[in-house]
Amino acid sequence: MNLFKKKNYITIQHVQNTKNEDIESPSIPDGLWLKCKYCKKTVYKKDIGEYKICPHCGGHFRIGAMERIALITDENSFEEINGNMCAKNPMGYPDYDVTIKKAQEKSGLKDGVVTGLCTINGYKAVIAVMDSNFMMGSMGSVVGEKVTRAVEKATALKLPIIIFTTSGGARMQEGIISLMQMAKVSAALSKHNDAGLLYITVLTDPTTGGVSASFGMLGDIILAEPKTLIGFAGQRVIEGTINEKLPEGFQTAEFQLEHGFVDKIVRRDELKETIGKILKMHCVEGGGF
């Protein structure tokens, strides 16, 4: 276990073109001690390291989009695109603007995804990184539009697209328009796919609902962080439907791997290296031997 290995360590301050330098780890409350949701043990904050992994069970604490970008991209390589896009209120949902404002304050982000160009171990890619601190990463117009534009950009520039998902599903406050985002992103991915380009999905905790039922499950290669909750339906909904308790380990990354829906489970501290290797093997023009 290389829990404390400092490879490719990038502090958030080195990330350019973002306004979130002061947001260090929005998922982890202040204080010296944390509780791991997987093993329920109390963990000394310093012991989870820069990758935020529980030293007892290897469970991964949730991290924000900017923190993720710092861990994955090469230093100073990330250039954000469409960083100013903000939600409107297509359904006239009461006080939606207030909800959005609160989520912006909590997450330090404009909406639930950050997109941009970067290099990873020297290989160029477009990335889209979702953030569960913003209304549980729910997908409304902004998430759908930014991810679609990121995919279209990758298609135009003939680059791989890498999407880090974390989402509770559709943004209910935007009604049917949020559902349409699933079709919109998937159609953009279809064009990227037709161009023979690489799409890597990295499923992080949690990836459920409309995101799992669209771009989450469409990667050429689907990676997942350990123990990540991945599924279509929410667990309480399923329990309510079938009227029984769910089995241990249901809808985890390991469950999805077992059932054939995930290519590989990768620890967060090995993710950059793994993605780098995959990119390297896909950078040969036209493939072949």
Binding site: A87, E145, I177, M180, A188
Partner: peptide, 9 residues
């Protein structure tokens, strides 16, 4: 399907 979405930028 591309047209769906309401946002400002």
């Amino acid at each position: 399907f591309r047209q769906f979405g309401e946002y400002s930028e």
